[in-house]
Design a protein around this nucleic acid. Structure first.
Lengths: 237, 237
DNA sequence: GAGTGGTCTAGACCACCTT
DNA sequence: AGGTGGTCTAGACCACTCT
């Protein structure tokens, strides 16, 4: 993290999360901060815009920037977050069971979801996620082998993302998520503790790399009473 | 719209949505665009970053910016979108039935959701939304009267947002949404065509004005098979 | 009128990719 | 080596808010 604006951003985030900067107090003005951090106003503005986008502050023209009550915005899953990060945030014991790990030819469904041809090979990973006592989430992951040459049970039991980013150096860039509610399949009922529910909340995730290529399709199927998705958005942009 | 970077952004958006700029083609370089639009590189970068955030392009360091396939990203409800905009996008006939429109004292639940005191008065609006043949969405809106002095049945049958923004000049700034799945209440069953479902997809929406004050709480309750929520997000920020 | 955030400019250096 | 996007600077003018 050598970027000055990121350092400034992170420092202020820490101060807000610590409580050093309390909700509703005003930040110093941009010119003030520029002096304080030895940066130009442009760099300060870049940091403040990040804070604004992520719901930490509100900028008001002619007045200043005020700190928002970030505690009221409990755990933000907005964006791309992995199961491991999530369960850590919730502070609960978690466990992963790998039910399937195969290299296969894409069927028609997958050829549609991932942009692959007949010849490509696809990794299929099916994992049940346990938080607290119950198996609550069924993750079905599909990777193009072109990007992920090898995959082991051990990797799947931990965080595949860590492996992809740290070991393989893949740079995940953006994702489209589609959230819906579907009837529970036989597979859902077999692998999850559905507690009598006959529907699941489904998050379909299309993950792209830095060069915009689509390399992963994921379906995350949640027991409805344990599902929450939080979205923070600003009007206009 | 007098901002130069917004004009440039909108021009390029139009070109992408028209098909003048096809997916996977490279945009001109930033220096090129700066000449072309008679702007500085900083202004061009502002426009391009907007395009990137909204899923129109992908910027790749050292190479250039490429156009993403925006048609694959069908209707994006990401962010704050009103029912009227949504039904227009889906190109279907739509209808709104106002079941309740009252000025009331806040109960404990509302005092928690909205930041109001005993003395404030709250508008409560309950509306059923029909798309196609079925009543699919039940909207329960709560406004602080401090911000919305008067409200009529006619306004509620159209778009409350248009009224708030155009007539009252309120500037909606940001919102937090929480998506979950809940058991259908007696109210849901009474006002909606639930088709046998006993759960609903619920979007709880906390809407803030420009000065960060919370002025509206909304619950949008959807029949599960008709519910979709789409989220586009970039990693890191 | 003084202070604030929003926009825009012109120039500089860097890391990265292509050739 | 030359082009590209990413960062940073210093200065300018504007619209808005407060007093």
């Amino acid at each position: 993290m050598k970027n000055k604006y990121l350092k400034i951003y992170n420092e202020i985030v820490k101060q807000i999360e610590n409580g050093e900067l309390e909700p509703n107090v005003k930040l110093p003005s941009e010119n003030n901060l520029a002096d304080k951090y030895g940066a130009s106003r442009g760099t300060i503005r870049k940091a403040l815009n990040l804070l604004s986008q992520n719901g930490y502050i509100q900028k008001i023209k002619g007045k200043g920037s005020i700190v928002l009550d970030v505690k009221k915005f409990d755990f933000p899953i907005s964006g791309i977050v992995t199961f491991k990060e999530l369960s850590k945030k919730m502070g609960q014991a978690s466990d992963t069971t790998v039910h399937q790990l195969d290299l296969m030819k894409p069927d028609n469904f997958l050829k549609n979801q991932l942009s692959v041809t007949e010849d490509d090979q696809i990794w299929k990973v099916v994992r049940a996620r346990e938080i607290g006592q119950d198996k609550i989430i069924l993750d079905k992951d599909f990777f193009n082998q072109e990007f992920v040459p090898s995959l082991t049970k051990e990797i799947c039991e931990g965080s595949i993302y860590e492996y992809l980013e740290d070991e393989l150096g893949l740079e995940i860039s953006f994702a489209k998520k589609v959230i819906s509610v579907e009837e529970a399949t036989r597979e859902d009922k077999e692998y999850l503790d559905l507690n009598g529910y006959n529907v699941v909340a489904v998050v379909k995730n299309y993950v792209h790399l830095n060069d915009a290529s689509l390399f992963q399709y994921t379906e995350s199927r949640h027991r409805p009473d344990k599902f929450r998705f939080i979205d923070f958005s600003r009007r206009g942009v």
